[in-house]
Design a protein around this nucleic acid. Structure first.
Lengths: 146, 146
DNA sequence: GTAATTGCAAATACTTTGCCACGTA
DNA sequence: TACGTGGCAAAGTATTTGCAATTAC
């Protein structure tokens, strides 16, 4: 995103949040702006350490803001983790794609011919990365939680 | 995997590890066995809480064993996280696939027509999950770290 | 016997919370 | 003024580490 677009985007987010009863504060603006500028997933610590935020507010505030953005659906939390890391055995011939319930956290393995495997070669070529593998997860609400 | 296969698999892992100087211990066998039995990603806490492991060894041991399996390449750690969670803004029209360096942790967004989008519908139908979305990351070693 | 492994407890790191002061509308 | 927010410090949870005792080979 370009700078101007980011400003527009931030304004739009704030407007949405204001409609839902949240107040416009400098810290809120900055969090959205920094996330948009980053252009990739960031940790809360990373965010809180940005000069603008560091001098603007406490780390706890950044935590609270990001969580609020998450609840409001403006932000997504990546990965399967609920605080702790997940590990899986690399069993030859076994698939490694999962279907995860965003409500109860249940994780199911899904069996399918993976359409992404082929892309790994392309990516190695175009990015210069080596030893490329992928991870693919589907998230949704399972029947029990619906 | 069936029970017999699991036993065979565990034995094979142990053999590999023995060749690399590790010792065969009950805790090591159990960790591999429990991970294989789980058939999906697990947290270390989850593992350590399995009755067999709980009565066999300390939680710190399970941490150390899983990390060793990770170093030996028998296990994969899922997700982008280095201890902390990652968050990304949901910007309409922006892609959400990433290329991550397993050495230095650098995260790059990658632009491509995502081949997985189409599968979401299939999965909703076959699994009964609703509000399905996906997450796709490629991992590898970036040119700088190679 | 020797070196890898383990238990236990202490140290770190990350995240969440309580409570009162403060700022926005 | 009223209620959402923010700061600060303490609590909670996950992970890592030091070191002496133990175990595998």
């Amino acid at each position: 995103m370009q700078l101007v677009e980011i400003q527009t985007y931030v304004a739009k987010c704030i407007a949405t949040l204001r409609e839902r009863g949240m107040r416009r504060t400098r810290a809120l603006e900055l969090v959205i702006e920094e996330m948009a500028t980053a252009g990739r997933p960031v940790t809360i610590q990373e965010l809180a350490a940005k000069p603008s935020l560091e001098q603007q507010c406490d780390q706890a505030t950044v935590y609270r803001l990001v969580i609020k953005l998450l609840e409001q659906g403006l932000v997504r939390k990546l990965g399967l983790h609920e605080r702790s890391a997940y590990f899986a055995l690399l069993i030859p011939g076994e698939h490694h794609d999962y279907l995860v319930c965003t409500e109860c956290g249940a994780i199911k393995s899904i069996d399918m011919s993976c359409p992404v495997k082929k892309l790994e070669k392309d990516i190695m070529k175009s990015s210069g990365f080596s030893k490329v593998y992928h991870e693919l997860e589907f998230y949704g609400v399972c029947p029990k939680c619906a």
